[in-house]
Structure formats: C-alpha cells, structure tokens
Computed example of a mutant assay.
Amino acid sequence: MGRWQPNARGRLEQAALDLYVERGFAQTTVTEIAGRAGLTERTFFRHFADKREVLFSGSAELQELLVAAVNGAPEGAAPIDAVAAGLDAIGDLMQERRPYARRRQSVITANTELRERELIKLATLSAATAEALHRRGVAEPAASLAAEAGIAVFRIAFGRWVGGPDDKELAQLMRESLAELKAVAAGA
C-alpha cells in the first residue's frame, strides 16, 4: 500500500456504508472498513474518531450552510422565514445525494446508538440555528421556537424524502411541511 492514496476520506465513507448495509453497523469493524477502502486503520483514524462518525461526517458542512443561509436571509424576515431560507439551502445541497442518504438512513434506523447520534446532530443544528437567529436580533423564546420548528420540519421532510417516491425534491417537501406547520399554528 502506498503512503498516499487519493480521496482516502471518500473511499472510507463508501466502504463503511457498503459494509454497514451488507453486514450491519455493529458487525462491521474499522479494520474491515479500512481494508475494503484499500487503506490502513491508521488512515481511518486520521479522518474519523470512530466508525459512527463516518455516517455523520457531513454534519459540520450542513450546519455551516444552514447558518450562513439564515444569516443571509433578507433583513426584516420573520424568524421562521429566515429558518426556511436555511432549509432551502440544505435541501439543494442534499438533493444530489439522495441514493446515499437513503442507504445511510437505513443503517441509522436499524441501530439505536446511531439513532441517538442522529438526534444529537439535529439538536446541534437547532442550537446553531437559534444562535444565528439571536445574531439577527431575535429574542427568546422566539429564536429557539423557530429553530426547533425548523429542524422538526427538516426531520419530517427528510423522512418523507428518503422513504418516499422520487417525485419530489427535499426542498419542496420542506416547504410543504413548513406550510403545514404554519397552518397548524394558525389553527386551520
């Protein structure tokens, strides 16, 4: 094995997901992931803290994009509309990764530890969104309520997107879920 291999991170992510789908998360070892990717365990640990993090490695990028879009929403936008701008941004990013997202979600759904990690990721996204709203001048509890509602919209729409037919994009499903939430809140 050479000292340097191009796209080691991507190869590790793909090898891990393939093995998790084939064998199950709990039955897959870091040694097997590294071997499937043609790399060493040492290389694996340069990129990931543990085998769970392979499935959550895009969380920071997702959070940055969401926060940037909330920050960039038009001045004077209602808090929920600023959150909607963030949801649109992440919907566009994730749309091209639908096949990967479906496989990833099937692995997460099958494992309690991974479902807990997913909830932590969503809580982190909510906290970052609330902080972005604070920077826009939104006070509590409005900032936290809008952020939590936005992440709930994301979670519901994401579930429909990965589990449903290919006829709708994630951003569209999030807009529909947000409209439904607004209708519920309005008492319609």
Results as ranks from 00 to 15, higher is better:
residue 47 H to F: 15
residue 32 E to R: 11
residue 43 T to P: 00
residue 138 V to W: 01
residue 114 L to T: 00
residue 141 P to N: 08
residue 53 E to W: 10
residue 139 A to I: 07
residue 137 G to D: 01
residue 148 E to S: 01
residue 127 A to E: 02
residue 76 G to Q: 04
residue 85 A to C: 13
residue 84 A to S: 09
residue 130 A to P: 07
residue 140 E to K: 07
residue 113 E to Y: 10
residue 35 G to E: 10
residue 32 E to N: 04
residue 65 L to P: 11
residue 18 D to T: 15
residue 25 F to W: 14
residue 138 V to G: 01
residue 28 T to Q: 08
residue 90 I to R: 15
residue 51 K to C: 13
residue 127 A to N: 03
residue 50 D to Y: 04
residue 143 A to T: 01
residue 48 F to Q: 08
residue 15 A to C: 13
residue 51 K to R: 14
residue 125 L to I: 11
residue 23 R to V: 10
residue 72 G to T: 11
residue 70 V to Q: 10
residue 118 E to F: 13
residue 106 S to K: 02
residue 129 T to A: 04
residue 60 A to I: 09
residue 30 V to H: 01
residue 80 I to N: 00
residue 68 A to S: 15
residue 67 V to R: 07
residue 100 Y to E: 08
residue 99 P to H: 07
residue 25 F to E: 07
residue 33 I to N: 09
residue 113 E to T: 10
residue 85 A to K: 12
residue 93 L to G: 02
residue 59 S to G: 10
residue 31 T to L: 04
residue 126 S to Y: 00
residue 148 E to P: 00
residue 118 E to P: 12
residue 94 M to W: 14
residue 16 A to F: 12
residue 16 A to Q: 12
residue 92 D to W: 13
residue 56 F to Q: 02
residue 96 E to W: 09
residue 43 T to M: 12
residue 37 A to N: 06
residue 134 H to Q: 06
residue 66 L to Q: 14
residue 135 R to I: 05
residue 95 Q to L: 14
residue 82 A to H: 00
residue 40 T to G: 04
residue 67 V to H: 10
residue 132 A to C: 10
residue 61 E to H: 06
residue 125 L to H: 06
residue 73 A to H: 00
residue 100 Y to S: 03
residue 34 A to N: 05
residue 79 P to W: 00
residue 58 G to K: 03
residue 27 Q to A: 14
residue 91 G to F: 09
residue 148 E to W: 02
residue 94 M to E: 15
residue 20 Y to W: 09
residue 77 A to F: 03
residue 119 L to C: 12
residue 123 A to C: 09
residue 49 A to S: 08
residue 18 D to Y: 14
residue 76 G to A: 07
residue 29 T to E: 01
residue 55 L to K: 06
residue 57 S to R: 15
residue 26 A to E: 15
residue 74 P to R: 09
residue 104 R to G: 01
residue 78 A to K: 02
residue 66 L to R: 14
residue 140 E to L: 09
residue 109 T to N: 06
residue 120 I to D: 11
residue 127 A to F: 04
residue 80 I to F: 06
residue 120 I to Y: 02
residue 147 A to E: 00
residue 38 G to Y: 02
residue 147 A to N: 00
residue 66 L to G: 11
residue 83 V to C: 04
residue 131 E to T: 12
residue 122 L to C: 01
residue 118 E to Y: 12
residue 74 P to A: 11
residue 118 E to W: 09
residue 23 R to P: 05
residue 76 G to N: 03
residue 24 G to E: 01
residue 136 R to V: 02
residue 90 I to Q: 15
residue 22 E to Y: 13
residue 124 T to G: 02
residue 71 N to F: 12
residue 35 G to N: 10
